[in-house]
Design a protein around this nucleic acid. Sequence first.
DNA 1: AAGCAGATGATCGTATACAATTCATTCGGC
DNA 2: GCCGAATGAATTGTATACGATCATCTGCTT
Lengths: 236, 236
Amino acid sequence: MKSAAKATQAEDSAETSTQLIRDSIREAIVERRLSPGTKLSENDVGNLFNVSRTLARAALQALSYEGLVSVAKNRGAFVAYPSPDEARQIFAARRLVEPGILREAAARITADDISQLKQLLLEEGRLMSERGQTARRAEIKASGDFHLRLAEISGNAIMQRFMEELVARSSLVIALYGQSTVSSCGHSEHGDIIAAIEGDDLDRACRLMLHHIAHIEADLDLRERKSLGLKEAFEL
Amino acid sequence: MKSAAKATQAEDSAETSTQLIRDSIREAIVERRLSPGTKLSENDVGNLFNVSRTLARAALQALSYEGLVSVAKNRGAFVAYPSPDEARQIFAARRLVEPGILREAAARITADDISQLKQLLLEEGRLMSERGQTARRAEIKASGDFHLRLAEISGNAIMQRFMEELVARSSLVIALYGQSTVSSCGHSEHGDIIAAIEGDDLDRACRLMLHHIAHIEADLDLRERKSLGLKEAFEL
DNA sequence: AAGCAGATGATCGTATACAATTCATTCGGC
DNA sequence: GCCGAATGAATTGTATACGATCATCTGCTT
């Protein structure tokens, strides 16, 4: 038998319904259909997906490990409400890792990857010009996907997972503290970064990336929001 | 009222017994009392800690998010058995983030922090000279603690958690692929890094850190181990 | 009328029960 | 004697049940 091995990162594919629930909720959070502070009761989640509390709870636990929901003992789970300090740490982390990821990605990038990235940009641009909630949500996602795709190209699954966490949490931060209505990050900057990679100017690409992240961060108003008791947040 | 807020990263303290179990198992893995591939059945874990399968399962799930155990659907949980490729990615990730962490840490480090770090080194050195399993285990832990402490000093909780994951997984990799009996990483190199920080020579400190990580990696023999069917690993 | 005490309802924490799957063994056939 | 199918034990997947905790609402006291 040739199997036996690879019990290492076992992920046959879609593992269980728990994963499905987790992914659904995460997507809802990232696309801002769920606002920070929203209560996610185990019962409601379970009913919503037609599973028992057991699985709902497992999904919420998983999301709490990603920092997307916070569970308070005996009080339940809520869509995470990152503090200004947390927000700063998230972006500090991105400044710390993204240049490195970019370098690794550039070292392995293929012509095919580049055309795929450009495709992504096009799509992103198209969505920006469109109107409507759906387009806006898709745009938010596409904007993060650029960073995610770079991590994927880098070939390091661990950094990729970490970036997924950071991008998702960034979305929460922007939802909370973002000022400009122009939700996502500067679209043109993504294009500039690709251009720099194509031109084999890595240092420039990294500089642009740092500038890009700083740009997103500059749009935030990181002042303590009156934390609206988590109750008024959705019951009022 | 000054509370109300901070429902963000709710961690009143020791939350539940699940955390306790998770921490216990993680410690056992990091200190190599549990070998890669060892089966962790939900029943056994539950009995061992006098809780039901529910909590045992939750703890194992949590550990799987950290990459310390791998759960295979319908087959159970096992202490992770990182592939050579995974091992490379883990160290690539460390090379990517540790210099950055070091820089941030150096920017905020206090005299007190430095003396604490030196204290840690002393302890580490003492353990190295000692004989016995217990000392060896403590040494492994102390060696990782140096890197962890730096992350803590950096003041970024997110990077700190990420480093905890990386250090723990590194321990698994070393257990699997390490060659020299000198388990942990070069003790003297830690001291050199501190010296460079004290001397305000950040570039040198980063270079030393990269060299240090490369040094650990060089001691690995990253060839596919015959993955001993995960069964023979502990039943034989 | 304001404030506190107790009761009530909802929600979470944990254990247990049952169904489904896997793994090992044994039995029968070739 | 060897290979394949069937059976049975063990383990996981999921649901449900019960006790504990917290939030809210009532009603009494001052």
